[in-house]
Nucleic acid binder design. Structure first.
Lengths: 199, 199
DNA sequence: AAATGAACTTCACAAATGTGAATTAATTGG
DNA sequence: CCAATTAATTCACATTTGTGAAGTTCATTT
C-alpha cells in the first residue's frame, strides 16, 4: 500500500508538471485527487498490452517507460521512451477506445498516478482545466513529433544519436541501448559502432 | 475577381471536407462564409514566408502546396506536401503567433479559402463547431505524424517511396521529384535510382 | 559465488544511400 | 519556335548502415 504522505508527494509532482502549461484551480485539483490513483510497479511490468483496449491514462511520477509494438516480422519497434514527470499513454487508441497494438512497458521500477479511461470523460465535464490542458499538450506533442520527423529525414544515424545524447542523457543512462537504437531507427550493432567511434 | 458562383463552390468543398469529422450547423456555416475569403494564386507563389508572422489559416480547395524551411546549410527541407481539399497551414507558429521559419509554397496554381489569424480567435467564440473540430484534426495530424515517424525509422528509402507511390499517386504526378525526395528523407539522386530499379 | 541468460560489442562482409559531375529531358520565357 | 533555365537521370565512387556470428560484459537467480 502507498501511504498518504507519498500519495501527497505524487500529486505535488503532478500539479507542478501541469502548471507548466496551465493554472489548476483548487476545484480541479480536488477532482484529480479523487480520480487519479497512485500505483507502484516493478521493473519490466507491461502496464498495458497489445490486443486490448487500454484502461488507463498514466502519469509517470518517477521511472522510465517505453511504448512498443510488433512489426510484420514480429520485431519490437520502440516508438517512445520517457521518464517522469510526464503523462505517458498510447494516445490514438486511448482517444478512440479501440483495441491497441501497443504495449506500455515500465523499463525500471515506476511510480505512477493513473486514471481510468472512462473517468477521463467524467473529469472533462467536472473541471474547467482539462480541455484547455489537453489542447495544449496535444499541440506540444505535435511540435515534438514534427521535430523528430525532421531529424529522421535530415540527420544521419550518428547525428541522431549525438542529439539524443545531448537532449536525454538520463534516458541514455537508464534505458537499455537496444530500445534506444529502435527508437532512433537504427540497428543495435550500428549504435554500438557509432558509440565506439565517438569514444 | 472571383464570382459568387465559384465562391459558393469553394464553400461547398470546405463544408463537405469538414463534415468528414463534424457536423456544421447553419450558423457556423454562416460564420465561415463571413470570415473565409476566396483567393486564387499562380503557380510558385509563396503564400507565407519565413521570417514573418504568418497571417492566414489556409484551406486548399484545389492545387498542390508544400511547406519548407532552410536548414543550417541553407538547404531547403520540405516537411509537408499536400493537395486539396485540406487545411494547410504552418501549424506551430500559427498557434503561437510567433515568427515562422517556414514557407508556404503553392507548387501549382491554387484555389484557396483563407481566414486571417486574428479572426480565428473571433470565430472560435462565435461558433460551436470550431473547438471540437480543432481537437479532432489535431488528433488526426498526431496520428498521421506518428505513422510517418514509424515509416522513417523502420522502412528503407525504397519502401518509403513505394508507400508514397501507393498512398499519394496524384502528388507524385503533379509535384517535382526533388520536393518529394526531400519529404521522404533521401537525395534526388537516390530517388532517381530507386525509380529506375522499380521500372 | 557460480551459473545462466541477456545485453552489448566487435568484426568482416553485404547492401543501401550519399555525392558530385556529366548528360539528357522538360519547362519557361521571350 | 528557339534559347535559356531548371529538373531529372545516370554513373562511378565514397560513405554509411545493415547483418549475422562470435565473443565479451553485465545482471539476475539460485
Amino acid at each position: 500500500m502507498i501511504d498518504s504522505q507519498t500519495t501527497e508527494h505524487y500529486f505535488d509532482v503532478l500539479f507542478t508538471y501541469v502548471r507548466l502549461l496551465v493554472d489548476i484551480p483548487k476545484i480541479d485539483q480536488h477532482i484529480c485527487r479523487e480520480y487519479f490513483k497512485p500505483i507502484v510497479v516493478k521493473k519490466d511490468t507491461l502496464l498495458e498490452k497489445e490486443g486490448t483496449v487500454h484502461g488507463y491514462h498514466n502519469f509517470i511520477v518517477k521511472g522510465y517507460m517505453r511504448i512498443f509494438h510488433h512489426d510484420q516480422n514480429d520485431e519490437e519497434i520502440t516508438t517512445n521512451i520517457n521518464d517522469g514527470p510526464r503523462f505517458f499513454t498510447s494516445y490514438n487508441h486511448f482517444v478512440h477506445k479501440s483495441i491497441s497494438n501497443e504495449n506500455l512497458h515500465c523499463i525500471t521500477d515506476c511510480e505512477l498516478l493513473r486514471i481510468k479511461r472512462d473517468d477521463v470523460d467524467i473529469t472533462a465535464k467536472l473541471g474547467i482545466t482539462q480541455l484547455d490542458y489537453s489542447m495544449k499538450i496535444l499541440q506540444y506533442h505535435l511540435e515534438k513529433n514534427k521535430q523528430r520527423t525532421i531529424d529522421l529525414t535530415t540527420l544521419t544515424a550518428e547525428e541522431r544519436y549525438l542529439k539524443f545524447m545531448r537532449n536525454s542523457p538520463s534516458i541514455l543512462k537508464n534505458v537499455p541501448l537496444k530500445y534506444i537504437a529502435s527508437y532512433l531507427g537504427m540497428n543495435p550493432g550500428s549504435l554500438s559502432r557509432i558509440r565506439a567511434q565517438i569514444g
